[in-house]
């Protein structure tokens, strides 16, 4: 049994090299600085700024998924990926659905 386990954990060891963590770190920094610069210097109109903010956030999320959370690992089928995708879908439903429904339900504020 011990053999069995360390066999599995050897497989897990493959992921994550110093290189991938450093690249992920640098990419994250860049993707943080871009929206900060755009917003704090008032560089774009409202819609443009929002797009930059959301796109860089989404990209940084993907960077962290790949470089920090090693989502490419673990054998098929990738239960964590499927659950994540479904979770993101529900997240969008909750946020966008609430915004849409509450547009018609505004109170005096």
């Amino acid at each position: 049994m011990a053999e069995h386990n360390s066999h599995d954990s050897h497989a897990h060891e493959q992921h994550g090299s110093l290189k991938s963590y450093v690249i992920g770190f640098i990419l994250s920094i860049v993707l943080t600085i871009i929206p900060l610069v755009v917003v704090l210097n008032d560089m774009m109109g409202r819609t443009g700024t929002m797009v930059v903010i959301l796109v860089t956030a989404a990209l940084q999320f993907v960077v962290q998924l790949f470089f920090f959370m090693h989502i490419r690992e673990t054998g098929k089928p990738r239960w964590n990926v499927m659950a994540l995708i479904f979770g993101l879908l529900i997240m969008m439903t909750i946020v966008i659905g609430s915004i849409w429904i509450m547009l018609n339900n505004v109170v005096a504020h």
Binding site: I94, G97, S98, I101, M102, N105, V106, V107, H109
Partner: peptide, 14 residues
């Protein structure tokens, strides 16, 4: 103070 009871109804039925 800006509260919105409909948001509860929206969320609780979600």
């Amino acid at each position: 103070m800006g509260g919105n009871p409909m948001m509860y109804i929206n969320l609780i039925w979600m």
